[in-house]
Amino acid sequence: MADPERFSNLPEYAFPRLRRLLADATPPAGVDPVVMTIGEPRHAIPDFVAPTLARTVGELAKYPPNEGTPQFLGAVSGWLGTRYGLDIATDRITALNGSREGLFNAALALCPERKNGGQPVVLIPNPFYQVYAVAAAAVGARAVFVPATDATGHLPDYAGLDPAVLDATAICYLCSPANPQGSVAGRDYLEALIALAEKHDFIVFADECYSEIWRDAPPPGALQAAEAMGLPERVVIFNSLSKRSNLPGLRAGIAAGSRANIGRLRVLRSYSGAPLPLPMQRVAEVAWADEAHVTANRALYQEKYAIADRVLGNVPGYKGPAGGFFLWLPVDDGEAATIRLWREAGVQVLPGAYLSREVDGVNPGAGFVRVALVGPAGETEDALTRIRDVLYERG
């Protein structure tokens, strides 16, 4: 029987903690507050969304296919071919009601109850997207939080773990470009991780929802590396239209991997998953097949990378992100810096400790704040200038 206390050790979600932290703080008078806490894109949605919805609204009268329409799956398959040079059949892809649902449900579908005779392990980068830890708890696995700090290039050093831990591992989560650090796993890193998964018999869940927001070059994909190695069963990738197309409310996510792994996920979702309404799938069909709006969107983020580099480039320890839309700014204390910024600058950020787990007395996010570059360029430059002036240039 599942332990009814299995969620009792999960920390409170980041945003309720933030509200409580700032409950007694108010921004200064005469300053327009800027909220840079949540990774919700604020760029314009693509022009094709409204007319596609209007044209297909009558399909709300129909039950949608749980795994995705043939057109939806075909569009995703085509995108995987264009973006990564992959030839992925549509039965190796499934629609998701947002990538978060898939990152959770895939653990239910693919994590064994026992691994090598004992409790399975789920490896999680630290800091991390909180659904990874909830998924591990849901399947009764032991979560092992692996630091992703400057010392490791802000990517987890899974290969450095005890071989006994790796032998017990069933699932390993990886986010690239990383939330919150903006680091990118290169092809060598991905190939080494997939080889490790093959050696120790586990699956890599690659969270690639920031894959289309990058500075200089498109990040390589985990399935791309796995296919080249002849090991597609070692990887399941997750992505969505939330970031690449500014459509977080569409909830049009995807998972892709081997036929067997996606088949198991499809079976679970046929009972427990919420299918994407047909008008939403019709919009997604167009969005996955169109790159012009993605290129334009990326240019807006690249403009804000340049702003951040210009405003904060002289800050000790500052590193501009290689991908994604967060800054991971070094501070003495993340909570204290967050309170100070709200009181003195009217800028709201997120303490890095709220995205991390304390292990052996150390929280790798405690000395950082996360800043979301989701607003317009002018607002972003003004807010980053306030951050610099309060935290770094005025002591």
Score class of each variant (00 low, 15 high):
P147I: 07
P147A: 07
A148C: 05
T149E: 09
D150K: 15
D150T: 14
A151L: 14
A151W: 12
A151K: 15
T152L: 11
H154K: 08
L155V: 03
L155F: 10
D157L: 05
Y158F: 11
A159Q: 15
G160I: 02
L161V: 12
L161D: 09
D162Y: 10
D162H: 03
P163Q: 13
P163H: 06
A164M: 13
A164W: 09
A164G: 12
A164S: 14
A164I: 10
V165P: 05
V165A: 09
V165Y: 05
V165W: 08
L166Y: 00
A170E: 01
I171E: 05
I171G: 00
C172Q: 11
C172Y: 07
L174K: 03
L174Y: 04
C175N: 13
C175E: 05
S176Y: 05
S176K: 07
N179C: 07
N179L: 10
P180W: 03
Q181M: 08
G182V: 00
G182H: 03
S183W: 05
A185E: 00
A185K: 01
A185R: 04
A185G: 13
G186D: 14
G186C: 05
D188L: 15
E191P: 09
E191W: 06
A192Y: 03
L193S: 03
L193W: 01
L193G: 06
L193V: 15
I194W: 02
I194A: 06
A195L: 09
A195V: 02
A195Y: 08
L196Q: 01
L196R: 01
L196I: 06
A197F: 05
E198D: 14
K199T: 13
K199I: 01
H200A: 02
D201P: 11
D201H: 07
D201G: 08
F202E: 01
F202D: 02
I203K: 09
V204I: 14
V204T: 08
F205L: 10
F205N: 00
A206L: 03
D207K: 01
D207N: 15
E208F: 01
C209N: 09
C209Y: 10
S211N: 07
W214V: 09
R215V: 01
R215Q: 11
D216H: 11
D216G: 12
A217R: 15
A217I: 12
P218Q: 09
P218A: 14
P219D: 10
P220M: 07
A222Y: 04
L223W: 00
L223S: 00
L223I: 02
Q224T: 09
A225C: 12
A226I: 05
A226E: 07
E227D: 14
E227C: 12
E227I: 15
E227L: 12
A228L: 10
M229G: 02
M229T: 04
G230W: 08
L231H: 13
P232H: 09
P232W: 01
P232K: 04
R234A: 10
R234V: 01
V235E: 00
V236H: 15
I237C: 02
F238H: 07
F238V: 03
